[in-house]
Computed example of a mutant assay.
Amino acid sequence: MTIAVGIFELFTYAIPGSFYLALFTYIAARAQWIDMAAATRTPTVLLVIGLVLVSYVLGYLAYPLGHFVNKVLPRRRGGEVTAAFLERNPAARKREYVEADPFLLLAAIQTNDTEVAADVTRLRASGLMLRNCAPPFLIAAVVAVVELFTSRSPVFAVTCAVIFLIGFGALVVQGRRLGRWAKLRTLEAAFWVPDIDEKFRDPQS
């Protein structure tokens, strides 16, 4: 479980935060707010530790931005995971656990099989990582548009703007897809947890 939590934090916070850090460093260097030569003279160990910590904090602070982008952007199709699961697995139609909270189901899977639960966690963390990496790509596209008027390489700036915009859309789409797969995987794994329906059965029925 320690490995799963570490992977979740790395994917969800540290990796997206590193994109924000790289973007802010580029902006600061272009605006001459920082001396890159002086920064590179910092001891390597301290520099690496500092970059990791700053990336994690930035990723944590910017997490709501990724959630907001994912929420406001339109979806091409419905994201009803439960309906898709039941369509593929008719035997689960009368199972009580199907309508339960997916995070509670994940906790049940963790008590039954930590390896399977870690697999679900990694899948969910990968989806969140892609989603949270999308906003810095959008900001980078805006920076590239600005560079179109301020740099000496307008063709390169336009190319970067297009690539970053495409990357922004692709990250959101793929993040949603992995999130959907994580929910499907949760339902599929919970199907095999012994007596799981008893825990969600209404005692009044």
Score class of each variant (00 low, 15 high):
Arg93Tyr: 12
Pro90Thr: 03
Ser153Trp: 04
Ala107Val: 07
Gly59Tyr: 02
Asp101Tyr: 06
Arg95Leu: 02
Pro154Glu: 05
Leu61Ile: 14
Asn112Cys: 04
Ser126Tyr: 10
Leu106Asn: 04
Val81Tyr: 04
Ala141Ser: 14
Leu165Arg: 00
Ala141Glu: 05
Tyr56Trp: 14
Asp113Lys: 02
Leu105Lys: 03
Met129Leu: 11
Arg131Pro: 00
Val116Pro: 01
Cys160His: 08
Val48Leu: 15
Asp119Thr: 08
Val81Ser: 09
Pro102Arg: 09
Gly66Glu: 00
Ala100Ile: 07
Arg75Leu: 11
Val143Asp: 06
Leu51Pro: 03
Gly66Ser: 05
Arg75Gly: 08
Cys133Phe: 03
Ser55Phe: 05
Asn112Trp: 12
Pro74Val: 03
Phe85His: 10
Tyr63Phe: 15
Arg131Leu: 14
Leu61Asn: 04
Tyr56His: 15
Ala125Met: 04
Cys160Tyr: 11
Ile139Met: 11
Leu61Arg: 12
Val54Arg: 06
Tyr63Asp: 15
Arg95Pro: 03
Phe149Lys: 09
Arg124Cys: 07
Phe68Leu: 15
Thr159Val: 11
Leu106Ala: 06
Ser55Gly: 09
Arg131Asp: 14
Tyr63Met: 13
Asp119Asn: 06
Lys71Tyr: 12
Phe164Ser: 11
Pro74Asp: 01
Val145Lys: 00
Ala118Thr: 08
Phe85Leu: 00
Leu130Thr: 02
Ala83Ser: 11
Val54Lys: 08
